[in-house]
């Protein structure tokens, strides 16, 4: 009984550590895609051209194209654009996804991972 409890605890710890490691590595592109497409979360196609989404808006730039300007080392800049674009343009129309609690930090990580995945190589 005691051994099995310990084993369960150990397993939970391992899973938890693995998950946090994955999060620290910079998010999950598959999750990011879901967040980008969901109308109640990112809803990015409201303003941007997003690969695979119909009737995109034309208020903001084409996401795949705009990613061309960002290398892997610019990850923090891309993250900041999604989190709170007001840092780059105080009068932007882009909602402040982070400060206004539209997305969590983990969700923004996932979105950024997705954005790098659609970047044209």
């Amino acid at each position: 009984m005691r051994t099995s409890n310990l084993a369960a605890l150990g397993l939970t710890l391992v899973v938890f550590l693995a998950l946090s490691a994955a999060a620290m590595a910079g998010g999950n592109a598959e999750n990011g895609k879901k967040i980008v497409q969901a109308r109640n979360l990112g809803n990015c196609a409201a303003c941007h051209v997003v690969p695979g989404m119909e009737f995109p808006g034309d208020v903001g730039p084409d996401l795949a194209k705009s990613m061309e300007g960002y290398a892997a080392k610019d990850r923090d800049t891309v993250w900041q654009w999604v989190w709170d674009a007001r840092k780059f343009d105080p009068d932007t129309i882009m909602p402040p996804f982070g400060p206004n609690k539209l997305l969590t930090k983990e969700q923004v990580d996932d979105v950024v991972e997705y954005l790098y995945s659609i970047k044209k190589k």
Binding site: C47, F55, G57, V59, P96, N100
Partner: peptide, 23 residues
């Protein structure tokens, strides 16, 4: 929560598309 003003959509971006809607 989206931090929009009426004027942003209906003056500055009027005529743009927001998904399938014309502003």
């Amino acid at each position: 929560q989206f931090n929009f003003s009426c004027a942003l959509c209906h003056v500055k971006y009027s005529g743009h598309m927001m998904r399938a809607n014309l502003l």
